[in-house]
Structure formats: C-alpha cells, structure tokens
Amino acid sequence: MIKFILGRLSYLIPTFIGITIVAFGFVRILPGDPVLLMAGERGMTPEHYADMMQRLGFDRPIWQQYLEYLWKLLHGNFGDSIVTKQPVLSDFLTLFPATLELAFCAIIIAVVIGVPVGVLAALKRGSWFDQTTMTAALVGYSMPIFWWGLLLIIFFSGILGWTPVSGRISLLYYFPTPTGFMLIDSLLSGQKGAFASAASHLVLPSIVLATIPLAVIARQTRSAMLEVLGEDYVRTARAKGLSPRRVVGVHALRNAMIPVITTIGLQVGVLMAGAILTETIFSWPGIGKWMVDSISRRDYPVVQSGLLLIAGIVMIVNLVVDLLYGLINPRIRHS
C-alpha cells in the first residue's frame, strides 16, 4: 500500500513542476503590460516606467524570474497582487471559503439526489421513472449553466421575489466570520434570521453549480448499477434467494459505488470551472470571480499563483480519490 501511495506521489512531482511552468509561462506571455495599465491614459515617463519594471522584477531574464518564483514558492510566498498589494495567498484564503461553501453545497445536492435517482433508475430500467430522470439528466448535462443561472434569477428573484439577487447574506446582519463559511458563522453569531438569510442567498448558486455534477452522477450511478446487476455474483446471490433489498443494498450498491466515487472526485475540476461562471452571475465573492477579474486586470502574480493553487487543489483531490479507489478496489494497486 505504501509503495502504491509513493508511486502515485512520484507522479505528482513532475506534474506539479509542469504546472508551475505553465502557470508562470502563460502568465508571462500574456500580452499587455501591467505597469502601463496602472498608469492608464496618464502614461508615465520612461524613467518611471523603468523604475517600476525594476521594482516589480519584470526587467530580469525570464528564467531568472521563474527560479526566483520557485524559490519563493518553496518558502510559502505566492507573491503579492499588483493591484491590492496584498499577498496572493492571504487574498486566496479570504475568498476560498466562499467558493468552498458553494462547491460543498453543490456536491451535496448532486450526491444526495443523484445517487438515489441513479440507483432507482437502474433498478427500474426502462420504466417511465428511468426515462424521465435520464432525459432530465441529459438535459442537465447539456445545460449552459450561465444561462440557467440567469433564468433562475429572472424567475425566483425577479418574478417571485423569493430569493435575493446576489451576495452571501443580507447586509442587515453583521457578525464576525471566524470560519469564513457563512452558514456556520451565521449560526455562531446567534443573530435571529441570519442563518435563513445566508441559506436563501446560497440556494440558487448551489443549484446552478450542482446541475452538471448531478446529471453526471445520476447517469454514472445508473450505468454502474446496471453493470453490477449484470455481474455473475449478483445473479448468483439472487439465485440463492437472498432478498432483493439485500442484494441491491449490500452487494450491488457497494460495488457500484467504486466508479461513482471516482466520478464524484472528478467533478471537483468541473466544480472549479463552474464556479467561475456561477460566481460571475451571482456576484459571489469567491476565487472563480477573483480569477476572472484578475485576468482582465493583468494582475500577473494573482493569475499565476491562483492557477497554481487551484490546480494544486484539484490535483490533491484527485490523488485522494485515487488512493481511496485503490483502498476499495485492491485490484488497482497491482496494475
């Protein structure tokens, strides 16, 4: 097992170095000059320009800048934003809980609805339930979620007035946010109505973000279930006269969950991509929106380290899923 873990880890190191090269390289060939953008129409004198380039370290050869960047990374220094002058890591950490909260709610919605629907659809293969839910799943899978979000806003915020337009909580509530998760902090604050307000702000964005993972998980669960139900040992168990519930609950479900867990793990990357769009639509102060804004502001250090941090997170989650998979399914370890 340890050998397996080490094997996976040894893959990660070159990948991670590759990621730093990509993050650094891409960002440094972005056209446009952050120093010129800072000055705007005003422009700046050549001397001042040279001075700024030197201060920000942009005047050195690119490989030197890259090594310096790596060196700083090894010391936990992700650089400072050109715009806010704050350390990128601290900006990331302030905004990350918002994204995490949203993604967490989305994945819960997706799993809690998707898995049972998939199982039921497989059990009742060909029934109207199967057909309806799988059609719905395919629609969800085909959904342009930025449009879906707008539709929900029009309907629930605009026409019905049930949910707020944007933000994380009503401004009437004001309390410390030690965890950064609005749902938890609002409970901790003990203020009446705060939790309800936070929850009502969270509903639409998490539905939007959950749409694609939900569809994928439902479809994947169904096909995994179908496959397992067709396996010999399930047929044998059935033939031996075990109750159908036991067959499904113990044997089939457990084995079907292996690919489903992988699927759920793979949705992390999808969630990060979805967060970019969802956060933009709902003005959700998370890292997706932060990245989009930083790209348009040419905030090199933020784009660079933001890419790195996001890819790092996706990679770690995938590793965990991989390990988990190996744990459940010993066959993988030896292949």
């Binding site: 893959y11 070159p14 990509v22 970019i276 790209i295 890419l307 996706v314």
Partner: peptide, 17 residues
C-alpha cells in the same frame, strides 16, 4: 506528464487564460 499538467487545470480556467 504533459497531458496530466493540462488536465490538472479546470478546463474553462485554462481556456480563459
């Protein structure tokens, strides 16, 4: 490994950059 690197980034984010 190069393919792994590309896949490590959320596709939309990478496309955006």
């Amino acid at each position: 490994r190069v393919m792994d690197v590309i896949l490590a980034f959320p596709s939309l984010l990478l496309a955006l950059v």
